[in-house]
Simulated scan of single mutants.
Amino acid sequence: MARSAAVLRLIWQRLAVALPTLVLISMMVFGLQKLLPGDPIIALAGEERSPQAIEYLREKYRFNDPIALQYVHWVADIAQGDFGRSIRTRLPIGDMLAEKLPVTLELAVFSMLFAVVIGVPLGIVAALRRGSLIDFGASLFGLLGLSVPNFWLGIMLILLFSVHLGWLPAGGFVSPATSLLGNLKSLLLPSIVLGAHTAAILMRHTRGAMLVALKQDYVRTARAKGVKGSVIVLRHALPNALIPVVTLGTLQFGELLAGAVLTEQVFGIPGFGKMIVDGVFSRDYAVVQAVVLCTAAIFLLMSLLADVAYVLLNPRMRT
């Protein structure tokens, strides 16, 4: 009962902060796109444009209204689930988001799985073998994971596994409805590229949290009682060490969604990242606004889930 009350109280507190933050982000997104060079209406009118056609398009897309009024109309439409239409493709942006979001979500999930499977066990072993060659190798992996750019790592993996070995496709995306095996092959390399940075972060935090947990009094007491080392690690130290790692991983998942732009561009994956790049190059600012706003909303949601997870896992936070 106390846990449910603490969670509900936390949710209301975070929503009280998240909603104004989302409004501020929407204002920044809408205002900054007005500063971008070029006129999307001229691009939409085409080469054989006439003044009458340009004026008609400006009226149709409310470009003649004051900026404040344009923002109000834009927010009101979004509140009703209408993100407008793409100037380039004439398609509803909401349908485009519904088509591209599952692709980026799937890529983020696979990347997070790779990061957890590699980063967490490596951090645990590095903490248990502190000062050994394993610890040195784990620290080197963490340094490389944080330092190597995604686009360079992606190109190197393509050269190795696609060009020289021919094991995996160099790019593209296969829907799981078309071929489950093809879907796994198309996402393997980009998942490694996108998840390497997160794996390095999880490894470093897991190692640090485990080192702290192994120095606690309850661990020394368990050792004094003759409890096996594996039991001490798995039942006493690890559950407490993973509390901050779980909350960090939730936030990192939100960052994976926002950071997939370069990875999707390198591998030609038709997700949110490629959608926003195409929107910028074609001056389709309505698409750019929608993608950035949705990404910000997802990140705020993951931040809320991280706070809730921390309260659920750490009883001291409920008071």
Rank of each mutant, 00 (worst) to 15 (best):
P239K: 04
P239G: 04
P239R: 06
P239D: 02
N240P: 01
N240A: 08
N240K: 00
N240Q: 08
N240F: 02
N240Y: 04
A241R: 00
A241S: 01
A241M: 01
L242M: 14
L242W: 02
L242F: 08
L242V: 03
I243D: 05
I243M: 05
I243V: 15
P244A: 09
P244V: 02
P244D: 06
P244W: 11
V245F: 03
V245D: 01
V246P: 05
V246A: 07
V246C: 02
V246N: 03
V246L: 08
T247N: 09
T247V: 06
T247G: 12
L248E: 02
L248P: 00
L248G: 00
L248Q: 07
L248M: 11
L248W: 02
L248R: 04
L248C: 06
L248A: 05
G249H: 07
G249E: 02
G249I: 04
T250F: 04
T250R: 00
T250V: 06
L251P: 01
L251C: 01
Q252L: 15
Q252G: 06
Q252N: 10
F253A: 05
F253N: 02
F253W: 05
F253R: 03
G254C: 04
G254M: 05
G254W: 06
G254V: 04
G254S: 07
G254P: 05
E255T: 10
E255A: 12
E255S: 13
E255Q: 13
E255N: 12
E255Y: 14
L256V: 02
L256G: 07
L256F: 09
L256I: 01
L257V: 09
L257I: 10
L257R: 03
L257H: 03
L257Y: 03
L257M: 11
L257E: 05
A258S: 14
A258M: 10
A258W: 04
A260Y: 11
A260E: 08
V261P: 05
V261Q: 08
V261F: 05
V261T: 12
V261I: 15
V261D: 10
L262Y: 10
L262P: 01
L262A: 15
T263I: 13
E264K: 11
E264Y: 11
E264V: 12
E264C: 12
Q265C: 08
Q265I: 02
Q265T: 15
V266R: 04
V266E: 06
V266Q: 07
F267N: 09
F267L: 11
F267R: 08
F267Q: 09
F267I: 10
G268V: 14
G268N: 13
G268R: 13
G268C: 12
I269A: 07
P270L: 15
P270D: 12
P270T: 14
P270R: 14
P270W: 14
G271M: 13
G271H: 11
G271N: 12
F272P: 00
F272T: 13
F272Y: 12
F272N: 11
F272V: 15
G273L: 10
K274T: 15
K274C: 09
K274E: 15
M275Q: 14
I276W: 04
I276F: 07
V277K: 12
V277N: 11
V277A: 13
